[in-house]
């Protein structure tokens, strides 16, 4: 199993697109904190930004494109053709020849993805929050370790969500479009939450409740409940993806 995970790590890190996700995801949030520092400071002194407890943590969201890209390419790369001679030939054919047990393969893939994204999230969170402390230390309280851990968990679950959807669609574009549009400043899920309170339980919205305190929300959800709800979403989608992956012809 260890060698399988190592093989999957190597495969993932050999993809140029995965590196786009790694670099973008890691640098975006700290860069935004740095660039927005003058505005944030002005907003704090002017009194327009009173609730500073989410400072830094809220900025992490911008880097989520990283885990999304990683979660998608882990699967979509397997479905790209490797040979012009036979349009049906895909990397997955080679992969499955090497590892015929599909569930073990998925387990190795999932582990590799979780390891990479958790590491990326930890680095990004450390960088972003340290930067926030350096820039706005006197106004921003140091977030509790549990909240930071929740943010890392949120990144990892987001990557798994992208991964599970791609397993189902076998195509990277649908999940990328869905997730990237939804990570925009005013997300579709957020809009929907204005229409029906149920939308507050959509995975991306409920997940942020694990570590964000700000209160423009119709429903109050405790952090632990939020974590459980998002994990349940990911688990169900992963199960569907795994069953399909197990059953389908390559």
């Amino acid at each position: 199993m260890v060698s399988l995970v190592r093989a999957e790590l190597r495969k993932l890190l050999g993809l140029p697109t995965a590196w786009v996700g790694l670099v973008l995801g890691t640098l975006m949030a700290p860069a935004v904190v740095l660039l927005n520092a003058p505005y944030t400071r002005r907003a704090i002194t002017a009194g327009t930004l009173t609730d500073t407890s989410d400072l830094g943590l809220r900025d992490l969201g911008i880097g989520l494109i990283g885990p999304m890209v990683l979660g998608v390419v882990v699967v979509s790369s397997e479905y790209t053709s490797t040979s012009q001679n036979a349009p049906g030939a895909r990397q997955l054919t080679a992969t499955l020849t090497a590892v015929p047990d599909r569930l073990r393969l998925l387990l190795a893939k999932t582990t590799a993805l979780v390891l990479i994204v958790a590491a990326q999230a930890a680095v990004t969170a450390a960088a972003t929050l340290t930067l926030t402390q350096v820039l706005h230390g006197e106004h921003a309280p140091v977030p509790a370790p549990a909240r930071v851990a929740a943010a890392i968990l949120y990144w990892t679950l987001t990557a798994l969500l992208a991964y599970a959807i791609t397993l189902i669609t076998r195509n990277g574009i649908v999940p990328l479009a869905l997730l990237i549009i939804n990570s925009t400043v005013v997300s579709v899920s957020f809009l929907l939450s204005k229409v029906t309170d149920l939308a507050a339980y959509l995975p991306d919205i409920v997940g942020t409740r694990m570590f964000i305190r700000g209160t423009d929300f119709p429903v109050e959800i405790a952090p632990v409940t939020a974590g459980l709800v998002m994990t349940a979403w990911v688990a169900v989608l992963l199960a569907v993806g795994a069953v399909l992956f197990h059953r389908r012809d390559v």
Binding site: V20, L35, Y39, I65, V69, S76, G172, I173, I181
Partner: peptide, 23 residues
């Protein structure tokens, strides 16, 4: 296709709103 989609959607839905949100 996939890198092009990442580039375009990243520009339109992440970088764009960020740039626009700056006072």
């Amino acid at each position: 296709a996939v890198p092009a989609v990442i580039l375009l959607l990243g520009m339109y839905f992440i970088a764009g709103p960020l740039l626009r949100a700056r006072p």
